[in-house]
Each structure stands twice: as structure tokens, then as C-alpha cells.
Design a protein around this nucleic acid. Structure first.
Length: 276
DNA sequence: AATTTCATCAACCGCCCGCTC
DNA sequence: GGAGCGGGCGGTTGATGAAAT
């Protein structure tokens, strides 16, 4: 059976976007809003596949995309989130303001994976690391030749002083499950308590902010922290083949219960050291 | 200076899921 | 219930340019 292609491939442009195409797409979305991607090629007069329009907008043209280096904090966050979520880049990106899933995926595949494996390619060993960063820094200062955009895609492993956090549209993974007793407290405190037999569900979720996940410098995780147990559980599930991205096993689908303390622990420096 | 090698990342591709009819 | 559509996701590819030879 199969699906029809998202649009006819005939007569469509492929490859790098031109400045004009970017402008057309941006103008259209500013006027009509996001979504309805299939309409865009027709209505905006773009010779692009709907998917291509969507991707271009989400990964590059969206105004809330943060340009600039991945900071050390962001890198830590990526590593930790990846440890917990696996290759679910969109979920990870949803917790890192201004970064796209594609960007994080690329960053992981080209840099972090090697770094964490400790098996850098020859080019990345020893002085090569510095050379590599030098190369990147050089690239930071010059635009790419792609005429479509002011491609300042710097990937140097340095912190940016002019770091301005812009929140992404964290459409996913923006809830945290809370322990039932905490939920109870929350409901009591907010006058929401109606049914004390509430089970874990969407109602049991609280919004959380990425700021809550950032590295805390002052806390220590006790070895017997629930956090480590959950990490172990996740690892076990992974080892049992339950971590396939799209089809997690029922075990990996089981709700993860994070208390505030655990969330605090999650982002701690020694989590990285211990796990990697 | 010319050529080769390699890293980077934007864009593409195919699959999956949720929704509607 | 199932077919089709629209949208989203993760894996992969290929153009590009810098570094190495």
C-alpha cells in the first residue's frame, strides 16, 4: 500500500536554500503562521517540498533559534539528557532553549560521541583537538558560502560571552511526573485536590523549566539516591533492548518518577563523571 | 601550489503516528 | 476498522571548506 509522497518531486528545487526562498518562506509563515506545510509551496509559490519548507523553518529560519557556540552548560545538558533519553533528539532539543534537534544530533554525532567514547579519531587526538578547535574558530569568523543565509554556524567548544537564552517551543517533554505524595502536596497547596486516588497520568505532570535542570554546583548525590536507581533501571531497560527510539518497550514506557530532589541531582556534575 | 583527507552540518529520505473520514 | 493525509522524527547523505600531505 504505502503512502503517497508528500508532494510531487518534479520541478522542485533541492539542495541549499537561496536567500529569496528563505525570504518567501519567512514572509509566508509570518503572515499565515506555522503548520499547513503542504499549502506553503502552492500558496507561497515556492518550488520546494512541504517537508523541506518545514525543515528549513524549524532548523534555520525560526526566529527563536539561538546562533552561536554550544556552551559547556548546554553540552553537559545534552550529555545527560542523551544518557536518559537516548537518541530522541527532539525531546533533548525541547529542553535546550534555542537549539534544534538537527543541530544537537549533528553535534552529538560529530563531536560528543567521539568525546564520550574516548576513542577520538586520529585527527582529534592530542594536539589535533586544538587544531580542530582552531579550525572551528576560524570558521566561526567567516560565513559559509551558501548564499541562502548568514550561516554563522560556529561549533567551537568555547563559551559564548554574548549568550542570550531564547526559549524554544518545547512542545514535548515539558512535563515532569511527580511522586504521588508530592502530587498530593502540590494539589493541596494549589487547592486542586479533588480525588486523592489520582493515578499517574497527564494530571500528574507539572511543568518544569530547563533552568531547573542546569548544573547545580553545591549538591552531592548520595550513593543511595533514587536517582541512581532510576539511571540503573534505564540502563537495564536499554540493555534489554527496550530503548529503541520509536518503539520503546512497555518497561521503558513506564512512567519515570522524578522528585524535585532527583531533578536537581540529575544535572549534577558528577552524574556525568560517574556515568561516562 | 596542488591534491588528498577529513570534519561539519544543512538537507534529504523513509518510516511512524495521530487524526479524520 | 481501515485507508489516506499531514506532520514529526531519527538516520543518512553530500556539498563544502579547512587541514594535512
Amino acid at each position: 500500500m504505502g503512502r503517497s509522497p508528500c508532494c510531487s518531486k518534479e520541478g522542485l528545487n533541492k539542495g541549499a536554500w537561496t536567500a529569496l526562498e528563505d525570504q518567501i518562506l519567512t514572509d509566508y509563515i509570518k503572515t499565515h503562521g506555522e503548520g499547513k506545510w503542504r499549502r506553503i509551496p502552492k500558496e507561497a509559490g515556492l518550488r520546494r517540498c512541504a517537508k523541506s519548507c518545514r525543515l528549513r523553518w524549524l532548523n534555520y529560519l525560526r526566529p527563536d533559534i539561538k546562533r552561536g557556540n554550544i556552551t559547556q552548560e548546554e553540552e553537559d545538558l545534552i550529555i545527560r539528557l542523551h544518557k536518559l533519553l537516548g537518541n530522541r533528539w527532539s525531546l533533548i532539543a525541547g529542553r535546550i532553549p534555542g537549539r534544534t534537534d538537527n543541530e544537537i544530533k549533528n553535534y552529538w554525532n560529530t563531536y560528543l560521541r567521539k568525546k564520550l567514547n574516548g576513542a577520538e579519531t586520529p585527527r582529534l587526538l592530542g594536539n589535533k583537538v586544538d587544531e580542530n578547535n582552531k579550525k572551528k574558530r576560524k570558521r566561526d569568523n567567516s560565513e559559509k558560502t551558501n548564499p541562502s543565509v548568514n550561516k554563522t554556524k560556529p561549533r567551537a567548544m568555547v563559551k559564548s560571552d554574548s549568550f542570550a537564552v531564547i526559549r524554544t517551543k518545547a512542545s514535548k517533554c515539558n512535563k515532569v511526573l511527580v511522586m504521588p505524595d508530592q502530587l498530593l502536596d502540590h494539589q493541596i497547596n494549589h487547592g486542586l485536590l479533588e480525588d486523592t486516588t489520582t493515578t499517574i497520568s497527564e494530571d500528574s505532570m507539572l511543568d518544569f523549566d530547563v533552568g531547573e535542570l542546569l548544573v547545580s554546583e553545591n549538591n552531592d548525590i548520595p550513593d543511595d539516591s533514587d536517582f541512581w536507581k532510576i539511571c540503573q533501571q534505564l540502563e537495564d531497560n536499554t540493555n534489554n533492548g527496550g530503548s529503541k527510539n520509536r518503539c520503546p518497550s512497555s518497561t521503558s514506557l513506564a512512567p519515570l518518577l522524578f522528585s524535585d530532589e532527583m531533578l536537581k541531582d540529575w544535572m549534577r556534575e558528577d552524574f556525568f563523571n560517574r556515568q561516562c
